[in-house]
Design a protein around this nucleic acid. Structure first.
Length: 409
DNA sequence: AAAAAGGTCAACCGCAAGACA
DNA sequence: ATGTCTTGCGGTTGACCTTTT
């Protein structure tokens, strides 16, 4: 099929989005919803409105204020009346991955990483489904995190990120690993992200299994306590007693901080952190870069060892961060409102996807097969009310102002 | 200080599938 | 039933940034 048809019709911009493009798209979708994405670029340009409030559709009497506004913000609005020189697909992507007001920005918490790992063990590279369990996170974001960070962490722990099993050196085990790629993905015809990893893992060493007594059984079977342990353990239990095999059902992917098999797989008993203190917002800058407020500050407040994983070695970036810093971008309300942040149970999350956006949705689905990300606003008031509920509000408003006024703020 | 290497992330590409005429 | 349009998804790319040499 090739490139989307709309891309043929005119010369369209590619690459990073400029602030005025963001503004156009944000303003348009905020007011009208996206509707048909293919028509958004044209409509977004013609429906442009400005914080100074004027309508380009009215009459000549506004021409003065129009020119005044343009002169005040030029060259930001040099393409003011030209519409968005983007294809609908690009607009959609920009909205979903960047402009959506419900996006949670900033580094992933340890809980989120743990959940991603658990979900990946179940779902494989179905990033959109994984993202559905992490409100405020995009599939792209999670995919990037996985490819750049989590994969590396797992390998450092001797775990094959594709199979979630220990990496072994023998050819037999390699073959077995190849044949047991996790998970079975009925529609994963595209999931071919294994080749390079397999090659990479050929020469890595075997990690010894942990020896852990089962506190519930005086016969002292050996049980895993961490995800790493679990996956190592799993591959070594082909002849395990039935009890042990049963223990290794998916529910036991729930790694309790207590470091004992959790009798209640739906409770993880996290020590929830205090609400974040609003700090400096993240402001996208033009010229192709985005400085994130989180880059210089640690958001992995779980790294202190309060949680079950105890934290895999962090990415290089995170390792330099202050382990006691309070995350500045995590929406406290989302932790409170999202049971999976509390439960930490991937199975429950998968089975209860309908829960994911129950917390006073700021907008509703307006197309039949849309996902939560593919939505249109109910009202601006609703959006503003929602926005006012968290520190992310400040970020977004400032972002909006920034894209409206460029770097003049 | 400069170059190389590595990491991160936004955005693009191509494919599949649903919607619709 | 068929073809076209549109959307959603996952893999990949490349620019930019940081770290290392």
């Amino acid at each position: 099929m090739g490139r989307h048809s709309c891309c043929y019709k005119q010369k369209l911009r590619k690459g990073l989005w400029s602030p005025d493009e963001d503004e156009k798209l944000l303003n348009y979708i905020t007011k009208h919803g996206h509707g048909c994405w293919s028509s958004v670029p044209k409509l977004a340009g013609s429906h442009q409105y400005h914080p100074f409030s004027f309508s380009i559709h009215t009459n000549l009497s506004l021409s003065l204020s129009l020119s005044l506004s343009l002169s005040l913000t030029s060259p930001l609005h040099s393409s003011f009346l030209l519409g968005l020189q983007r294809c609908g697909k690009s607009c959609r992507l920009r909205w979903i991955n960047y402009l959506r007001p419900d996006l949670k920005r900033g580094p992933f918490s340890q809980q989120e990483e743990d959940l991603i790992i658990e979900l990946h063990a179940v779902l494989g590279n179905r990033w959109s489904q994984i993202a559905a369990q992490l409100p405020g996170r995009t599939d792209n974001e999670i995919k990037n995190l996985w490819n750049s960070c989590i994969k590396k962490k797992l390998r450092q722990k001797g775990i094959d990120p594709n199979t979630h099993k220990p990496v072994c050196v023998s050819a037999d085990v390699d073959n077995e690993s190849e044949n047991n790629k996790v998970p079975a993905t009925p529609t994963s015809h595209r999931s071919n992200d294994n080749s390079s990893d397999e090659a990479t893992n050929k020469s890595t060493e075997t990690t010894p299994l942990p020896i852990i007594a089962n506190p519930h059984n005086s016969n002292s079977q050996i049980y895993p306590q961490t995800p790493q342990d679990f996956f190592r353990f799993q591959t070594s239990t082909t002849n395990a007693p039935s009890e042990m095999v049963d223990y290794l059902s998916f529910h036991h992917l729930n790694y309790a901080p207590s470091r004992i098999p959790n009798p209640n797989p739906t409770s993880l008993c996290f020590n929830l952190p205090p609400p974040p203190i609003p700090t400096k917002p993240q402001v996208p800058t033009w010229e192709g870069t985005t400085f994130t407020g989180g880059v210089g500050g640690n958001n992995h407040f779980y790294d202190a060892g309060n949680f079950s994983w105890g934290g895999l070695p962090d990415c290089a970036k995170s390792e330099k961060l202050n382990p006691t810093a309070i995350p500045e971008d995590i929406k406290w309300s989302e932790f409170v409102g999202n049971p999976y942040m509390v439960m930490g149970n991937a199975a429950a999350a998968v089975q209860n996807q309908e829960f994911q956006f129950q917390t006073e949705p700021m907008y509703v689905e307006n197309i039949s097969r849309g996902t939560a990300a593919e939505t249109g606003f109910i009202t601006e008031a609703g959006w503003q009310r929602q926005q006012a509920s968290s520190d992310a509000v400040y970020n977004k408003h400032l972002h909006t102002l920034t894209v409206s006024f460029g770097n003049t703020l």
